[in-house]
């Protein structure tokens, strides 16, 4: 699913550099990424998602070399093939849970996925236990419910790859386990690949593999 070769990334203003000589993630694999703050975990996810461009190297996702995409087609690819989950949920406060889950459809005008989006929303919401919350605003949900809604949003386009950036970081211990279990279950149900950044070593057990950022050459080049 993911293949990285001779990656070299540096922020335009300098100060941080990430080098990955080789990384392979198989389809359906569940990979955790751990590392200290500032070690480049989020940057790695951004590079895989095509949000940031490397100075050198090749990133291939689902058989597509990201460098071959134009900006527009890369965005289309991301919105169709990659589901993103954020630490702070990043639900739009003015949209109901239903509209938040449907957001990729509203942002990607050319997005065509099999099945009726509304039916898919209902199904995902039922699976994640927020069916009764679909017409509420995010502010009316608990933290755990918000992250469930965010997981639904990431899965709504049936992507092959889920990139989760510390999705349990804002949750209490009980909710952490629940949300992680739910995420893993949904990823398995949908046959997706999961790359999840986490600080929490207690959550690593269910993953197929753990990547430690210390294995890559990351940090201040000076």
């Amino acid at each position: 699913m993911i293949s990285i070769r001779q990656l070299d990334f540096r922020y335009p203003r300098g100060g941080f550099r990430l080098q990955v000589s080789a990384l392979e993630v198989r389809a359906g694999e569940r990979v955790a990424v751990v590392g200290a703050s500032g070690s480049g975990k989020t940057t790695l996810l951004d590079l895989i998602a095509g949000i940031r461009n490397p100075r050198a190297g090749a990133i291939t996702v689902a058989g597509n070399l990201l460098a071959d995409f134009s900006d527009a087609s890369l965005r289309d690819f991301r919105i169709c093939q990659i589901g993103l989950i954020f630490q702070a949920f990043e639900l739009l406060e003015y949209l109901t849970v239903r509209d938040n889950i449907l957001l990729p459809y509203r942002l990607g005008p050319t997005l065509q996925r099999p099945g009726d989006p509304d039916t898919r929303v209902e199904k995902l919401a039922a699976e994640t236990g927020i069916a009764a919350r679909l017409d509420r605003l995010p502010e009316q949900l608990s933290q755990g419910e918000r992250q469930r809604a965010a997981i639904c949003r990431a899965l709504i386009t049936a992507p092959g790859l889920i990139l989760a950036d510390e999705p349990t970081g804002n949750l209490d211990p009980e909710n952490k386990q629940r949300v992680l279990a739910l995420l893993l279950e949904q990823v398995a149900n949908h046959g997706a690949t999961l790359v999840m950044v986490t600080h929490d070593h207690d959550l690593l057990k269910p993953f197929d593999r753990v990547l430690d950022m210390r294995d890559f050459h990351a940090g201040d080049p000076t």
Partner: peptide, 10 residues
């Protein structure tokens, strides 16, 4: 909010 939308693919 704008960052979220662009990261998703807008």
């Amino acid at each position: 909010e704008i960052t979220t939308m662009t990261r998703i693919g807008a």
